[in-house]
Structures are given as C-alpha cells and as structure tokens.
Computed example of a mutant assay.
Amino acid sequence: MSGLRARQKADRHRRIIEAAAALFREAGYEGAKIETIAAQAEVSIGTIYNYYQNKGDILGAIVSMEVNEVLNAGRGVVAMPPANVGDALDTLIGIYIEHSLHYLSKEMWRQAMAISTQLPDSPFGQAYTALDRSLTDQIGALIARLQEVGLARPDIDGMALGELIFNNMNMMFIEFVKRDAARIPELRASIRRQNRILVSAIAKE
C-alpha cells in the first residue's frame, strides 16, 4: 500500500506542477489563481496547500524540476565529453540554455529571480541558490573531467573556472529574460563568443 500511496502522491504532485506551469504561462504569475490550478490539476485546493504554502512555492518547484532535468542531462556530457574543450563547454551550456524555457516563461523566470533576491533566506531563496550551486559544480566537474582526459591544462583551478563560466552565463541569462524580444540562438552565440577567450587559455596544446 505504501508504494501505491507514493505513486498517487507523485502523480498529484506532477499534475499540480504541470497545471501551474501552463497557467503561469497563460495568465501570468500574478494572474494565476490557486483555485484554477487546483481545478486544472483535478485536485482539491486543500491538496495543493498540503504540498505548498503559496504560489511562490509552486514556482520554486517548477524551477527545481527545470534545473534538475538539465543537471541530469548534463551528467552524460561530464561522463563522456566531446573531444575538445570548446565543444564540451558549448554542449553542456547548450543543454542549460535550450531547456530554459521548456517549463518556464521569461516572466516566470523574472518572478523566480525577484523572489530569490528579495527573500534570500526563505526556503525558496535557499533552494534557488542551491540549484545555482549545483549548476556551477557541474561545470567545474566538466573542467575536471577535461583535465583527466588530457584536453585541458592540469594547472587550471577547475572549480574557480566553473564559477567564472557560470557567473558569466548567469548574468547573460538574466539580461536575456529581461527582454522578451531576445532569442535563445542570440544568447548562445554571445556565450560562445565570450567563452572562446577562456577556451583558448585553458585548452591543452
């Protein structure tokens, strides 16, 4: 019975997240109502409040789902990276960027960033920071893997470089979500152009 209850709970959680993500996109974060999310997820309002205290918590769960999916995909790149530093970084960062609007709209990202900035010590703010840390660590792990296979210079501080690459990518992503007209191919090209400088400095000759 415990297995059945766990599956039912997971199914309800999935329906709530999917309904909320669709409604946030359609009506906007501020315009979305918990009652409507419950109706579209085919659960009671009480069930939603069993999982989440407010809409911000639901948004946080969507961000977490987004980031965890790209982290899972990124593990394959770290384990078996392309045969040069530039392609390896571009492949990993490409996973992050290409998937970024799969569940979240730009408006949803702006809301998530605002909440994490305004309430950094809240569960949402701490979870958002932890997700950023996980992405940073994965980039660092890729650098370490490239050093192991002899593609990157061994004297490079891989974790520091991972932080540098993530921080630059993150700032460019923030600018990207600020502008509704900005497009993913433009963002990827800009990141690739700036990372080219780092690649030339760390690639083993």
Rank of each mutant, 00 (worst) to 15 (best):
M1Y: 11
G3T: 10
R5P: 02
A6L: 08
R15N: 07
A22P: 08
L23F: 04
L23C: 01
F24P: 03
R25N: 03
Y29Q: 02
G31E: 00
T36M: 01
A38H: 01
A41R: 12
A41H: 04
E42S: 08
I45G: 14
N50G: 14
Y52I: 05
K55Q: 00
I62N: 00
V63D: 03
V63E: 07
V63P: 06
N68R: 13
E69W: 15
A73L: 14
A73S: 06
V78T: 03
A79E: 12
M80V: 12
V85T: 13
G86T: 13
A88V: 01
L92R: 11
L92H: 06
I93P: 00
G94Q: 09
I95G: 08
S100K: 07
L101H: 07
L101T: 12
H102K: 13
Y103F: 15
L104Y: 01
M108I: 11
Q111G: 00
A112E: 06
M113S: 11
M113I: 13
S116A: 15
L119A: 14
D121G: 04
F124K: 10
A127V: 03
A127M: 15
T129R: 15
R133C: 12
S134G: 14
D137V: 01
D137W: 10
D137C: 05
Q138C: 04
L146E: 05
L146R: 04
L146W: 12
Q147E: 09
V149F: 04
V149K: 12
G150N: 07
L151V: 09
P154C: 10
D155H: 01
A160H: 11
A160L: 15
L161E: 09
G162M: 07
I165C: 07
I165F: 02
F166M: 14
N168M: 15
M171D: 11
F173N: 05
E175W: 04
A181L: 02
I184Q: 14
E186R: 09
S190M: 07
I191Y: 10
R192D: 12
R192F: 09
R193T: 14
R196V: 05
R196D: 13
S200T: 09
I202L: 06
E205Y: 03
